[in-house]
Simulated assay, not measured.
Amino acid sequence: MAAFDAIRPYSDAEVAAVLQRLLADPAFQDILARYRFPRLAKPLGWLLRPILAFYLRRELAGVDTVAALQSKIEPYVDRSIVRGTDGVTFSGTEHLRPGEPHLLIANHRDIVMDPAYVNYAMYHAGLATPRIAIGDNLLQKPFVSDLMRLNKSFTVHRSLSGRREKLAAFQLLSAYINHSIRSDGESVWIAQAEGRAKDGDDRTDSAILKMFHMSRKDEPFAEVIRSLRLTPVSISYEYDPCDLAKARELQIRASTGSYDKAPGEDDLSIAQGITGYKGRVHVHFGAAIEQGFEDARQLAALLDQQIIGGYRLFPVHYLAYAQWQARDTTLAVPEAASLFSASELRNAEQYWQQRMAACPAEQRPYLILQYARPIQNQYRIRAGLPL
């Protein structure tokens, strides 16, 4: 495991020491105070921070393994996960055989909540939670890195610029993922592409699939993938708390050709994704892909079909599709009124009108796009058409 020290999650032997370091970190104490007491944190932060740290030390006394930590914080995490939703459901967990690790590859809409909901589904299905791939651009603060690595996260180095450094990083990542599944017996979660699908178009990057094979080049690609039990996961949000910010970014990119993130923008996206309203959330696990491909390109197309096909469509998606000027009029997409109850549709229409009203006119086509694209992609798959 020493070969993977730069990227791996913390081991059980490291948990106690990391917890002590984390609870003594003023930046972490400040975050806790702002989260728990948002109105009092600024004027009384000097008092609240040490009190919260003392309380957590007492609560976490004796916790010295990752599993024990997850069990201890699970009720709090569950409350946080469910607080911003109208319910979290999941399906397909029968495809995940207990005791057998899987390489879970999912669509990517939210920085933190995507793997959080996958963890939630697996934990409540009585399955071991996976190790989580997370970009180093999100681990700039030491306490954030500590928190994520305590929760079975490992680092994907995305900020490297040199070709040789990138190649070495991919090689190490490939070796670690293979080691995690084949030697440690631990499942792994990774997004199907770098960065969130801000336009609602969930597509698998074949470069990620090639990366899985890099550390086992002497073996056939298909055999390597089969040995990893590559399993598609579809994460569906009724509403995206970051949809207005995504619409703004898409509009700026379209009009100027580029978009530069402001300092702290990722932090704001993370906070909004965690606390913002999401309506209903559904996580679907497909069956492990074992055949039907010979190379990364074919596998990417197969994953796209499975992930998009497993995506749950809500009334808002149909409402947005009806407004989308670029929709495919040859597709047999039914009216929302024929699929949902009158009360369900009425609630969706009211919320959708509020989102549209909050969005500047020039950005509204990009808000519509986010919700409409999953309809077109899924109905193209149902019709046997290419994406």
Rank of each mutant, 00 (worst) to 15 (best):
D218C: 07
D218L: 14
E219D: 14
E219R: 15
P220V: 11
P220R: 12
F221Y: 15
F221W: 06
A222S: 09
A222F: 08
V224N: 13
I225Y: 00
I225T: 10
I225C: 07
I225L: 13
R226T: 12
R226Q: 12
S227A: 13
S227W: 04
S227L: 09
S227I: 08
L228C: 01
L228I: 02
R229L: 09
R229H: 15
R229D: 10
R229S: 15
L230P: 02
L230K: 07
L230G: 02
P232G: 04
P232Y: 07
P232R: 06
V233Q: 04
V233Y: 03
V233C: 00
S234I: 01
I235S: 00
I235F: 00
I235D: 01
S236K: 00
S236P: 04
Y237V: 04
Y237L: 07
Y237H: 03
E238H: 01
Y239K: 12
Y239C: 08
D240M: 09
P241W: 05
P241T: 04
C242Q: 08
C242T: 14
D243Q: 12
L244M: 14
A245M: 15
K246G: 04
K246Q: 08
R248K: 14
E249L: 09
E249Y: 07
E249D: 05
I252M: 09
I252V: 14
I252S: 09
R253V: 13
R253L: 13
R253G: 08
S255F: 01
T256E: 15
T256W: 13
G257N: 11
G257Q: 11
S258R: 15
Y259Q: 13
Y259F: 14
D260A: 15
D260P: 06
D260W: 12
D260Y: 13
K261N: 04
K261E: 13
K261P: 04
A262Y: 03
A262C: 07
A262V: 07
G264Y: 03
G264F: 01
G264S: 00
E265A: 10
D266Y: 00
D266I: 00
D267I: 07
D267Y: 03
D267E: 11
D267A: 09
D267V: 06
S269E: 03
I270V: 13
I270A: 11
A271C: 10
Q272F: 08
Q272Y: 11
Q272K: 13
T275L: 15
T275D: 14
G276Q: 13
G276I: 08
Y277M: 12
Y277T: 07
K278E: 05
K278C: 03
K278N: 02
G279C: 00
R280Q: 12
R280E: 06
V281H: 02
V281A: 04
H282K: 02
H282F: 02
H282S: 06
V283W: 00
V283H: 02
V283P: 01
V283T: 00
H284I: 05
H284L: 01
H284F: 11
F285D: 03
F285T: 01
F285G: 01
A287Y: 11
A287T: 13
A287H: 07
A287C: 05
A288F: 04
A288I: 02
I289S: 05
I289A: 03
I289G: 07
E290L: 02
E290A: 13
G292Y: 01
F293I: 05
F293M: 03
E294V: 12
D295Q: 11
D295L: 09
D295G: 14
A296K: 10
R297N: 14
R297F: 14
Q298K: 15
L299A: 10
